[in-house]
């Protein structure tokens, strides 16, 4: 018990004094997570909206696959990206394995289906309401798409934050493709996993506190946005 409280005190000290190792890990985590969410949003938002607005061959199949991919097991995605980027893999020549880029690729594969499916849902509902009015006003398909994305901005923010939540908590895939290399690919979740297994609770707890705070902040933002939209649908 005394050992644990000493570890907690040391962890708080690390956080308060902004320990350089800890800051490095937090910054890399933020970099990887934010880059993945940005890329996944750039792919998922237009794709999800297109699935809602355009009628094309294979649309229903893509919608079904996207929904199914929301529950992808991270370790399997990790394995897939590992095989893709390993020396003998199809993208081995780029030498990306065990780099932050590899971690971003794995995260994008995990998050894009989430953002796409949530966007599709939101835009499909809105399109039913707006379709005739937008066509009547003279909006072409592309204009209708951008209008709907803007109209659904509050709901879509929660979709993007859901993706960020998944990225922040993710450990399996980034561990496999990043390799958890010190000063290079060590992020919060992989460090916590490693340090806990080594019995070094101080750093693990310090990072755990920050991770929990970030996770709470993301989910609280989702709640606040949803709540404000429900009460005050602008």
């Amino acid at each position: 018990m005394g050992e644990i409280s000493a570890a907690v005190a040391a962890a708080i000290h690390l956080v308060v004094t902004l320990d350089s190792d800890l800051v490095e890990i937090v910054l890399l985590s933020l970099n990887v997570n934010c880059s993945s969410v940005t890329l996944a949003s750039l792919l998922g938002l237009p794709l999800g909206a297109s699935l809602a607005v355009f009628n094309f061959f294979g649309r229903r199949t893509i919608i079904m696959i996207t929904s199914a991919l929301m529950g992808l097991p991270p370790v399997v995605v990790g394995l897939f990206v590992y095989l893709l980027l390993s020396r003998s893999g199809p993208m081995g020549v780029f030498g990306l394995l065990y780099t932050p880029t590899a971690m971003i690729i794995a995260q994008v594969i995990l998050i894009t289906p989430i953002i796409t499916a949530l966007t599709h849902q939101a835009i499909e509902d809105l399109w039913k309401e707006y379709r005739e009015q937008l066509i009547s006003l003279g909006a072409g398909p592309t204009r209708a798409l951008t209008t709907l994305l803007w109209e659904a901005r509050f709901t879509l923010t929660t979709a993007v934050l859901a993706g960020l939540g998944r990225a922040t908590a993710e450990v399996g895939a980034v561990m496999i493709v990043g390799g958890n290399i010190e000063h290079l690919t060590r992020v919060m979740t992989t460090t916590i996993s490693l340090e806990t297994s080594k019995g070094n609770l101080t750093l693990a707890l310090g990072l755990g506190m920050i991770l929990v705070m970030m996770s709470i902040a993301v989910n609280a933002s989702v709640f606040i946005i949803r709540d404000s939209v429900r009460r005050d649908p602008k």
Binding site: E132, Q133, S136
Partner: peptide, 13 residues
């Protein structure tokens, strides 16, 4: 030509 619907559809702005 333009059309006004039974239930007005307003953009969120």
């Amino acid at each position: 030509q333009a059309m006004v619907f039974q239930r007005p559809v307003m953009l969120r702005r």
